[in-house]
Amino acid sequence: MLKLIIGNKAYSSWSLRGWLAVKQSGLTFEEITVPMFDEEWERRREGQEFAPSGGKVPILWDDKAVIWDSLAIVEWLADKTDRDRFWPKDEVARGMARSMAAEMHSSYENLRRECPMHLRKRFPPRELSENVRAELVRIFELWAQARARHGGGGPYLFGTFGAVDIMFAPVVMRFVTYSIPVPRFAAAYMDAMLAHPWLQEWLEAAQEEPWVIEKYEEAAAAQ
């Protein structure tokens, strides 16, 4: 059985991606939540479970194989199951989807920093920096292009739920948490994402978590 180690569901955006990827694979897995930065976290970081990742989550153990990056987890599971579960069948759409997933994986540092993921809070609209506003424009452009060119088969970016939606799921959550205004087409996409049963499951679990990490609370409230 696969074993997925994740951090707090309320705060860990990368854990959300890894968890959604395993759910999308359809494979049975053991889920282990390790509260970030507490005693258990520090203890596990010193052991073999965390060693390959350098102490970061998510970490997927598949027998002796260890995969510790969210996009790598997507690719591992796509190879292990069926790539069509994760990526569009059409070659042109697949190229765009791969590019969008990779850009999400490596970009938007300002949005990440100024709007850290926090699933137990809702903040009123706030003044965002010019850098964040530029990143929002880019995200909406990508979403619009994907929906217009390849989204005819369903409500998600490329029609059916897949790897790109997995990668952008924490962005959807940030838009909700910080009451960020979005275009109408983006709101429709976000509604579809928020209604997805897996995201509903994750959100419900996040509300029930007993752990509070003060530095994340302060960072979210201070922006």
Rank of each mutant, 00 (worst) to 15 (best):
A65E: 15
W19R: 13
L111A: 01
W41Y: 12
G154F: 02
W76I: 01
F158T: 00
E217L: 13
A186N: 02
D191Y: 06
R98T: 08
P197A: 10
A192W: 00
D63H: 14
E208R: 15
I73Y: 07
R98C: 04
A146I: 02
R184M: 06
D82N: 14
M96K: 09
F185D: 12
A195L: 05
C115H: 00
S179Q: 09
E214Y: 07
M96T: 11
I5F: 14
R147P: 05
A93R: 03
M173Y: 15
R184H: 11
P181F: 00
W87R: 00
R184L: 05
D191N: 03
F161P: 03
I73H: 05
L203H: 11
E201D: 14
L20V: 03
K80T: 02
C115P: 00
V132Y: 02
M96A: 10
D165R: 00
M100Y: 14
P170S: 06
A195H: 10
W76Y: 15
G18T: 01
T28V: 15
E204T: 10
P35Q: 14
T177A: 11
Y108M: 02
E135P: 00
E217R: 13
R122S: 15
D84E: 13
R138F: 06
L20A: 03
S12G: 08
F161W: 11
E40S: 10
A148G: 02
P125F: 07
N131M: 04
P181S: 01
E39F: 13
T81R: 09
G18Y: 06
R184D: 08
R113S: 09
W14S: 05
S53H: 01
S179D: 14
L77R: 07
G159C: 00
E46G: 08
Q200S: 12
F158W: 07
R184T: 07
K56C: 03
E218S: 10
I6K: 04
Y156M: 04
P125H: 05
P183G: 00
P35K: 13
V66P: 08
Y108E: 03
V176Q: 15
V171Y: 09
R126Y: 12
G151L: 06
T81P: 10
V74N: 10
Q48Y: 13
R126M: 14
T160L: 09
G152Y: 09
S179K: 06
S70D: 08
A146M: 07
M173F: 15
V66K: 13
L157T: 06
A148Y: 06
D79A: 13
V57P: 00
S13E: 12
A65C: 11
E31W: 10
G54H: 05
M167H: 05
A222E: 11
S13I: 09
L203Y: 11
M167W: 01
A65Q: 13
A78S: 09
R174F: 07
K9V: 03
S106N: 14
H150W: 12
T160E: 11
S106F: 13
A93D: 05
H105P: 04
F175E: 01
L199Q: 10
G151R: 06
G162Y: 06
P35C: 11
A102V: 14
M36Y: 12
P58D: 05
L119H: 12
P35H: 15
G18D: 02
A72K: 08
V132W: 02
I32D: 14
L142T: 01
I166K: 05
T177V: 07
G153S: 10
I73A: 04
S99A: 15
